[in-house]
Lab assay of single mutants.
Amino acid sequence: AEKTGIVNVSSSLNVREGASTSSKVIGSLSGNTKVTIVGEEGAFYKIEYKGSHSYVAKEYIKDIKDE
C-alpha cells in the first residue's frame, strides 16, 4: 500500500539512488514537498521521484499517511 509523507527540512533533502548515505545523490526535495512512499529499506523510504524510484532518509519525512 502506498503512503504519502511531507519533507520536513528547512532547506533541502537529498534524494539518493540507493538506501544508503553513501549512495549517489540524484536530486533534492525542498521542505513541505509531498512525497509518495512505495516502500522502506532500513533507515530510508523508497519514494516515487521523476518517474522512477529513489530513496530519502526516514528521519526527514513527517505526517505519514496511508493513501
Rank of each mutant, 00 (worst) to 15 (best):
31 G>Y: 13
9 V>I: 11
64 I>T: 08
49 Y>L: 03
6 I>S: 05
56 V>F: 01
55 Y>S: 00
64 I>L: 10
38 V>T: 06
48 E>W: 14
57 A>W: 08
38 V>G: 01
15 V>T: 03
10 S>A: 13
28 S>H: 14
63 D>M: 15
8 N>Y: 10
46 K>V: 12
20 S>D: 09
55 Y>M: 01
52 S>R: 12
49 Y>C: 03
60 Y>F: 12
38 V>I: 12
32 N>E: 09
4 T>E: 07
6 I>T: 08
60 Y>D: 09
46 K>M: 12
51 G>Q: 06
1 A>N: 13
14 N>Q: 14
27 G>K: 00
23 S>G: 05
53 H>A: 07
41 E>F: 08
39 G>S: 06
39 G>V: 01
4 T>W: 13
18 G>N: 10
17 E>T: 06
4 T>D: 05
59 E>Q: 11
11 S>E: 12
17 E>L: 07
9 V>A: 11
16 R>I: 07
21 T>M: 15
21 T>L: 15
19 A>I: 05
38 V>P: 00
37 I>M: 02
59 E>C: 12
19 A>L: 03
3 K>P: 04
21 T>N: 14
25 V>I: 14
29 L>T: 02
67 E>L: 14
35 V>K: 00
42 G>H: 04
49 Y>E: 01
14 N>E: 15
65 K>Q: 12
41 E>S: 09
34 K>R: 12
22 S>D: 14
42 G>R: 04
63 D>C: 15
41 E>Y: 07
11 S>R: 07
2 E>W: 15
64 I>M: 08
54 S>R: 11
37 I>W: 01
46 K>S: 04
57 A>M: 12
30 S>Q: 14
18 G>Q: 13
63 D>N: 10
42 G>N: 07
45 Y>A: 01
26 I>M: 06
9 V>R: 06
28 S>T: 14
61 I>L: 07
41 E>D: 09
54 S>W: 06
49 Y>F: 12
47 I>R: 00
51 G>V: 02
6 I>W: 13
36 T>V: 14
55 Y>L: 01
58 K>E: 01
38 V>H: 05
21 T>P: 13
22 S>E: 14
64 I>A: 08
53 H>I: 13
18 G>R: 11
45 Y>C: 03
1 A>P: 13
46 K>P: 00
27 G>V: 02
38 V>W: 06
45 Y>T: 01
48 E>F: 11
32 N>I: 05
28 S>G: 06
32 N>F: 10
27 G>E: 02
56 V>R: 00
54 S>F: 11
19 A>V: 05
4 T>N: 07
49 Y>Q: 01
26 I>F: 03
35 V>A: 01
31 G>H: 15
63 D>E: 15
39 G>W: 03
46 K>A: 07
61 I>Q: 01
28 S>C: 14
11 S>H: 14
52 S>T: 13
2 E>Y: 15
29 L>N: 00
30 S>I: 13
64 I>Y: 09
7 V>D: 02
23 S>A: 13
13 L>S: 04
43 A>N: 13
31 G>C: 13
7 V>H: 02
10 S>T: 13
55 Y>I: 01
55 Y>E: 00
6 I>F: 10
6 I>K: 06
31 G>I: 09
21 T>R: 08
46 K>T: 05
37 I>N: 00
62 K>E: 09
19 A>Q: 04
32 N>C: 14
14 N>I: 14
28 S>R: 11
12 S>R: 12
63 D>F: 15
49 Y>H: 05
48 E>T: 09
33 T>S: 10
42 G>K: 05
59 E>V: 10
